[in-house]
């Protein structure tokens, strides 16, 4: 095991430079070489997960044994019990879930309303305002982080869910992405609805939103995952277990159990498990969501 895994970038073997997008397999021998390279690469990708899981099931003496083994014996399930007793990971889950669900739904609500106005309604200053929105897309979050932190302190929102949710309930990027998509929906549809007496709100709710399933699904996954995995902002504004999300909780855990690798790895497994489970069962949606959003809707 160990000898084949020393080189994570195994995929760089010349064999994998098989150019062209040939639709049908042409070179069987070439494929075999490619498979070998891709499997080695896969092992390298999976090794950290395996190492995490293995360590999480070892006893401390097993951990500090040379040579290290990927198979724990005996298997120490107790580590997980010790981990959740040392740190309230259940609470962190709830916090993360609450924050991610709130951020995702609020962001989609506020952004789709605004995107609808930009894409479909005529009003003074529409282009100018949209340009202002776009201009801020380039500004990194870190520029606004410190003033936002001061604002949170000033509002006495430090270490509350407000601090975790409200500042991220809006997104220029989501407005941009949704506007692009909304503009692709034929205008005749909402004109027809308007002729039938539908208000703009009804057109948004009953024409545009139902027709935007793919982009909304993509954005939901993108925003949810981003919020669930977000680290820096929650690290800055939460200060107790009551508000810590999974990543911040795990970092806090590390701070306290610096060398208890069996517990730290058990905590890592606990932190990763829900997302990875959902990912394995909904791989296509995840990849689509992140690709579509990552490409800015192109």
């Amino acid at each position: 095991m160990t000898t084949t895994t020393t080189t994570p970038p195994t995929t760089s073997t010349p064999a994998s430079i098989r150019p062209g997008a040939a639709p049908r397999p042409t070179l069987k021998a070439g494929h075999l070489v490619l498979h070998v390279a891709l499997i080695l690469g896969s092992v390298a990708m999976l090794l950290p997960f395996g190492w995490m899981l293995a360590t999480s099931l070892k006893s401390p003496p097993q951990i500090f044994t040379y040579p290290p083994s990927l198979v724990p014996s005996p298997v120490v399930w107790r580590n997980y019990l010790d981990t959740v007793q040392a740190m309230p990971f259940g609470r962190f889950y709830l916090n993360s879930l609450f924050v991610a669900v709130s951020v995702t739904s609020l962001q989609i609500l506020t952004s789709s309303l605004a995107a609808f106005a930009f894409a479909r309604l005529r009003f003074r200053g529409r282009e100018a305002l949209f340009l202002v929105y776009l201009a801020t897309l380039m500004i990194p979050f870190h520029v606004t982080m410190i003033p936002n932190f001061i604002l949170i302190r000033f509002l006495r929102w430090f270490d509350t869910f407000y601090a975790l949710i409200v500042p991220t309930a809006f997104s220029v990027f989501a407005v941009f992405l949704l506007r692009q998509y909304f503009r692709g929906i034929p205008a005749e549809l909402d004109e027809a609805a308007r002729m039938d007496g539908a208000s703009s709100f009804r057109i948004w709710a009953q024409v545009i939103m139902p027709l935007s399933g793919p982009v909304l699904a993509a954005l939901t996954i993108f925003v949810f995952l981003g919020s669930w995995n977000d680290f820096l902002w929650p690290l800055v504004v939460s200060n107790s277990h009551a508000t810590r999300t999974i990543p911040v909780g795990l970092a806090t855990f590390r701070g306290q159990y610096n060398t208890d690798w069996h517990l730290l790895m058990a905590g890592s497994v606990i932190a990763l498990l829900p997302v990875l489970l959902v990912y394995v069962f909904a791989q296509k949606r995840f990849v689509e969501g992140i690709t579509l959003s990552g490409m800015g809707g192109r």
Binding site: T11, P19, G20, L34, M45, P247, S268, A271, L276, F286
Partner: peptide
């Protein structure tokens, strides 16, 4: 490199993609 390799009409594309994309969804702290 990986994309070109996977685009050869290889069998198991879904599985390779599942594995190579898995770290993208993991929490960076873990």
């Amino acid at each position: 490199l990986l994309a070109v390799a996977l685009n050869q009409g290889m069998r198991g594309l879904e599985i390779y993609r599942l594995i190579y994309f898995m770290p993208v969804v993991t929490t960076i702290v873990a």
